[in-house]
Computed example of a mutant assay.
Amino acid sequence: MKKIILIGLFSALPIVVFNSCNTSNSQTLVSKTTVADDEGYITIDTSKIPDDEFGKSVRYGRELMMKTAYYIGPNGINGKYLGNKMNCTNCHQDAGTKPYAFNLMSSHDNYPQYRGRENKVLTLAERVNNCVMRPHSGKPLPLDGKEMVAFLSYFKWISKFVPKDGDFKGAKNLEIEFPDVAASPERGKALFTENCARCHGNNGEGQYNADKSGYTYPPLWGNYAYQPGSSMHRVIKQAQWLKSNMPYDKVTIGKPYLTDAEALDIAAYVNDDAIHARPNPKTLDYPNKMGKPIDYAHSPFIDNFSAEQHKYGPYKPIIAYWKKNGWKAVY
Rank of each mutant, 00 (worst) to 15 (best):
L191Y: 06
G214E: 00
S137L: 12
I266N: 01
P140T: 02
F168L: 04
W157V: 07
N78K: 09
K255I: 13
A183D: 05
T89S: 05
C88W: 05
I5L: 07
P74I: 03
Y226I: 00
N84Y: 07
Y114D: 14
Y100K: 01
N75C: 12
A12N: 07
A268W: 12
I42F: 05
A182C: 03
K323D: 06
G83E: 06
A171P: 02
K189H: 13
S57Y: 15
P293G: 04
K164V: 14
K316T: 07
P140H: 08
P140R: 11
A190E: 15
N280H: 10
L141K: 11
Y70P: 00
K80G: 14
Q227N: 11
V181K: 01
I4V: 09
V128S: 09
D38V: 06
L220N: 05
S107G: 09
P218R: 01
F151S: 05
A150M: 07
I77R: 14
Y154C: 05
G214T: 01
V330Y: 14
E53P: 14
M65T: 15
L64S: 05
K2C: 10
K67D: 14
G96N: 12
G116L: 13
C21P: 04
Y257T: 05
P293R: 03
V16Y: 09
A261P: 00
A239T: 03
C131W: 03
K282C: 10
P99S: 04
T252W: 15
G55W: 14
K48G: 13
N202L: 12
G8Y: 04
Y81I: 05
S306C: 14
N90T: 04
T259Q: 07
G204M: 04
